[in-house]
Design a protein around this nucleic acid. Sequence first.
DNA 1: TCCATCAGTAAGTACTTACTTACGACGGTA
DNA 2: TACCGTCGTAAGTAAGTACTTACTGATGGA
Lengths: 195, 195
Amino acid sequence: MSSGTRDRIVTEAMRLFGENGFAGTSIAQIEAAAGLTPGSGGLYRHFPSKEALLSTGIRERIESRNELLPSMSPSSDAPTEAVLLKVAQLGLQRLDDERDVNRILVRDLASAPELLGFIRDAEIRTNHQALVTLLRALGGPQLDAEALAAILIDAISHYWLLRDVFGGEHPLAVPQQRYLTTLVDMAAHLMGDKQ
Amino acid sequence: MSSGTRDRIVTEAMRLFGENGFAGTSIAQIEAAAGLTPGSGGLYRHFPSKEALLSTGIRERIESRNELLPSMSPSSDAPTEAVLLKVAQLGLQRLDDERDVNRILVRDLASAPELLGFIRDAEIRTNHQALVTLLRALGGPQLDAEALAAILIDAISHYWLLRDVFGGEHPLAVPQQRYLTTLVDMAAHLMGDKQ
DNA sequence: TCCATCAGTAAGTACTTACTTACGACGGTA
DNA sequence: TACCGTCGTAAGTAAGTACTTACTGATGGA
């Protein structure tokens, strides 16, 4: 079965791109990691170029993932703080699960407009819209849910990113629980006020 | 004078590292940009290696910069929201001014522990500590100023980073003014409550 | 049994990489 | 004039780059 090799190539390529960057990963490295002979162009039986491999890897990873907020409404009788804390923890989890895609996004895609557009529409705006809907259900009509949702996403994403870049610990050394609690507290205060 | 050439090398190297990444920039490119003959090893009259050049560039940029919050206390009679908004705008300005260093940090330093430590101590924690001091002066003693300062820094940094990666516009398309106003509003609400 | 297709390899393409060596032009000092 | 260290260049090194070409063995359908 050839699709086994193809999938191994994609998996190992995404891991290597995430660890060493796109320019820092060679075709030979990917071949070796996928069980092919490094330097033989075996990879090109499955992909026409290094760029095409990157594009395929990113699209497959993002398309094969489920909704971040599948059905948050059933537990909407819980207090706002508890709901938001759960969402924040889910977001951090998701960032961890797609570590490689997230690293590649900030490192290597600044000059790949098609991939940027795909990620923006298929992942970033989708998650944002789901959070906006949730915030509107919990807060009053005066609330700027779009801005608040963006702030929550950005704060959590950058907390994750810095922790990742600095090898496991956020450079400001604020524990995750204190960080998330304070963030959720801020949001709840704002929402309570615009009720 | 040779130090002219040396400084040109550092300047152009930091620009190219920021634009194309460390692995994506060649010694020949840097030499050409600095006015040397590309491919002649003229760069090596001034730096022993590509890594040493990167290290020197980052350290010089960070050491030669002034305080982000020089003396915010004099205008402490202004309302909290106005002070925080000014600080947020200053932060965005600083991120723009040191665009190259910021890009290099998230793209290429994950496996350069000494540089990470230097940036953390000389830049990130310094700014955080200054903001913590300001927040403590404005808010009550019950406030978790360290967590709040980290959240404000992270939100603003990620807003800047995504706007940079996506070529000028934040993928969530929230205008800067609305974003900052909402962020400052959240902080002020929390601080007012813990007064 | 024949035969076409597929997946992988060996070997090589032309080119780029970081870095080195030998040398000449230069300015200051003796 | 003789000398010295500095700065840049020409020309190279060995290794690595993405990708190609020609081939081999296995597979599966007619």
